[in-house]
């Protein structure tokens, strides 16, 4: 199908693309200049010469109050948060949804709506009780404490519930006749069928975990648990005396922080779109 090229449409598209790309370009370019340069000239549109030094410093130089947390360590922590969140949430919400959809137990609908209404409550609302529970369990400053309390996911449970409901009943019946019990049915039939759905949830939850800021600040005081988000913040927090904040390093960390989510989206993108639009049945 040949379509007439409409210049106005293209103009709008190009402007839109520029508008969205501009901040990223500014961040990348600025991260290649020195802090002083940025302080005097403002953020940069063209590449500078300090790229190697900045990124090397950000990744390997020890910083923080204790002086032994590196950028690489922060990336690792963020990675653990992101993957831990995504995997944990998928596992938990799949199991919850399986129970809700396939097992008839009393008050199942009530439980579902109880889970569902927590969607309306942001983390901040229950952050104090959550903190107290973790504190009493002595899980402050641990990865377990960072990840586990946030694993229950109403969104994930809801998505998987809707997906399981759309799986035809005959498939379950055929499996029953084929001698597959509840566990076998789950692993042999439902899990493979949910692959695209899992990819979609993985992306959403990975980014969610990766971007966590408030929770890690509360849960960890040990700098070994610093995530990238906190690292960026702490670089800019040095307005003391005549210090210039290390803008370049903040930009470099921000650029680094973008890479994994982008990578995850690119890898899972096709499955993600399939998971959200079509059901492969």
């Amino acid at each position: 199908m040949m379509q007439k090229i409409k210049p106005l449409d293209h103009l709008i598209l190009i402007l839109g693309a520029l508008f969205l790309i501009a901040p990223v370009v500014l961040a990348v370019m600025s991260s290649t200049h020195s802090a002083v340069w940025i302080h005097t000239n403002g953020i940069a549109l063209l590449p500078g010469t300090d790229a190697y030094a900045t990124y090397k410093k950000v990744l390997t130089a020890r910083g923080g109050f204790t002086g032994d947390v590196t950028g690489a360590r922060m990336i690792l922590n963020s990675m653990i948060m992101g993957i831990g969140f995504a995997v944990g949430k998928i596992v938990l919400s799949m199991m919850a949804a399986y129970a809700l959809v396939y097992f008839r137990f009393r008050l199942a609908t009530l439980f579902f709506w109880m889970i569902f209404t927590t969607l309306l409550l942001p983390l901040e609302v229950r952050i104090m009780p959550s903190y107290q529970v973790m504190s009493e369990l002595h899980l402050l400053n641990t990865y377990t404490g960072l990840i586990v309390p946030l694993l229950a996911s109403a969104t994930g449970t809801f998505y998987f519930r809707q997906f399981f409901k759309s799986v035809p009943d005959e498939l379950l019946e055929a499996a029953r006749i084929d001698g597959a019990g509840p566990v076998k049915f789950f692993f042999d039939i439902l899990v493979p069928l949910s692959r695209t759905m899992m990819a979609a949830i993985f992306i959403i939850m990975f980014v969610y975990g990766w971007n966590q800021y408030l929770w890690p600040i509360l849960m960890t005081t040990d700098e070994h648990f610093y995530t990238l988000m906190r690292g960026i913040k702490s670089i800019l927090q040095v307005w003391v005396g005549s210090q210039i904040p290390d803008y370049n390093e903040a930009f470099a960390l921000a650029v680094l922080a973008m890479i994994p989510p982008v990578f995850v989206v690119v890898v899972f993108q096709r499955m993600f779109i399939k998971g959200l639009t079509e059901s492969d049945k």
């Binding site: 005959e170 019946e173 055929a174 499996a175 006749i177 042999d188 069928l193 049945k281």
Partner: peptide, 14 residues
Amino acid sequence: DIAMVFQNYALYPH
């Protein structure tokens, strides 16, 4: 010890 054939086939798609 029975086998059933369904109207919509109910084959495992994966």
